[in-house]
């Protein structure tokens, strides 16, 4: 019980952090706290295998995936304090609290106090017990998790994988083009300036400063410049707008040809 009473407040607080943290990363960390605490509770409840899986799979893999994506899409992004949907927060609070109260009352009322305990079930060892179930009763479900995994892989590939259609340009090709650009439009043939290195900040989204102290916008990778959001009232119009104007300012032309793109190219 000590474990529980120690961990429970931490977990609730961390969970609340998920609601209140302004920064996504903080939220992710809060969730990690909850997960690890849960793992300990599993251990306390005679579920050693789950304890391990929770740490390895959940905290280790799933949370990391979250963090990866967070990094990918802008770790700095923070929720604005202003609620866009009128009354959403209040309603959420009311409904949420009512739900919590109702559910916990119901459950607390009816959970029987008799605890059988897992000593019997774990007689041959927890893993063995789980395995027995997994390969008898739940064998079909287990088989189908395979399907689930495959779907996950295909889905991720379909949505995120970009098939290369043309051979990647070599250094020589790039060099030649840079020079051609310089000849035609006077574009500087060298590397773009690195962001932030001469400033107080070395974050990638902070522009570099020129010697006179003015910021150098080109130094920030286009990916990080927030795409302007117009009034997208109507789906049709928005689609038309995007199809008409082409990619946003960040969408560099010929992404597949430019190896310098900061965007994740899944190759």
């Amino acid at each position: 019980m000590t474990a529980f009473w120690t961990l429970a407040p931490v977990m609730v607080l961390a969970a609340m952090g998920l609601i209140f943290a302004r920064k996504a990363v903080h939220a992710a960390l809060c969730l990690a706290v909850v997960m690890i605490s849960l793992a300990m509770l599993y251990a306390a409840q005679d579920a050693p295998f789950l304890f391990a899986v929770q740490i390895i799979v959940y905290t280790g893999a799933i949370m990391m995936l979250f963090l990866f994506v967070l990094m990918l899409v802008g770790v700095e992004a923070r929720d604005s304090v202003v609620e866009t949907i009128k009354g959403q927060r209040a309603a959420a609070a009311v409904v949420g609290i009512a739900f919590a109260v109702l559910l916990s009352t119901v459950v607390a009322q009816s959970v029987s106090l008799a605890v059988v305990g897992l000593d019997g079930a774990n007689a041959d060892g927890n893993v063995h017990g789980l395995a027995t179930l997994l390969f008898s009763r739940y064998v079909l479900a287990f088989e189908f998790t395979a399907a689930l995994m495959i779907v996950a892989v295909i889905g991720a590939m379909v949505l995120a994988h970009r098939e290369r259609l043309v051979p990647p340009p070599t250094q020589a090709d790039l060099q030649a083009r840079r020079m051609r650009d310089y000849a035609e439009s006077g574009k500087h043939p060298g590397n773009p300036p690195t962001p932030g290195v001469f400033a107080r900040h070395n974050a990638v989204d902070t522009p570099a400063l020129l010697p006179d102290g003015t910021p150098l916008p080109e130094s920030v990778p286009g990916t990080l410049t927030p795409r302007p959001q117009g009034g997208t009232e109507d789906a049709d119009r928005a689609v038309a707008q995007i199809e008409a104007t082409g990619p946003g300012p960040d969408e560099r032309p010929a992404t597949t040809e430019n190896p310098e793109t900061t965007e994740g190219d899944d190759q």
Partner: peptide, 8 residues
């Protein structure tokens, strides 16, 4: 219900 960041 209250978070807007899809990841959160």
């Amino acid at each position: 219900l209250v978070r807007r960041n899809a990841i959160i």
